[in-house]
């Protein structure tokens, strides 16, 4: 049996801080370890930053729905938006080894999401774009 909590915000930059505070507050209620909370905040922030910056380009600004599901052995995060269709597979791999002069900042967000989450799944349907992240609890 899982506990689910949900928050909806307009896809504006201010939503990012609101989502992080929501994650902190809800994770604290369910006793989630600090390191896991940080990873969840980071992954959600990266996903939602993309939606805020690019998701609703060329269309009226919409909303982002963040749902957290607390299971005994994992936390599942579902982020839904109604903007442009986007797949994480489209992002180029970042350069992590080159000298500073050659580094580009692009692609680091998705890299961080894949590094900190145990699974990432994307689905697009009439109900919007739904990204599902899973983080295991040790």
């Amino acid at each position: 049996m899982a506990n689910t909590v949900e928050i909806t915000c307009a896809a504006e930059p201010e939503a990012l801080g609101i989502f992080r505070t929501f994650i902190e507050d809800e994770c604290s209620r369910f006793g989630i370890p600090e390191e896991v909370v940080f990873d969840l905040k980071l992954a959600v922030d990266e996903v939602c930053s993309n939606v805020v910056m690019h998701g609703y380009k060329g269309m009226p600004p919409g909303s982002i729905i963040l749902a957290l599901q607390f299971w005994p052995d994992r936390v599942t995060v579902q982020i839904t938006d109604f903007g442009q269709v986007f797949s994480p597979d489209q992002t180029p791999a970042p350069d992590l080894d080159g000298p500073l002069e050659d580094r580009r900042a692009g692609g680091l967000g998705w890299h961080l999401i894949f590094q900190t989450m145990d699974s990432v799944a994307y689905e697009h349907s009439g109900a919007g774009n739904v990204l599902t992240l899973q983080k295991k609890l040790d």
């Binding site: 980071l42 930053s49 967000g109």
Partner: peptide, 19 residues
């Protein structure tokens, strides 16, 4: 207490400019 990749971008650009 927290940074996303947006902070990394700023650090990268500022470091390049400082150099």
């Amino acid at each position: 207490d927290y940074t996303s990749s947006a902070g990394l971008r700023v650090v990268l650009l500022a470091a390049k400019a400082a150099r």
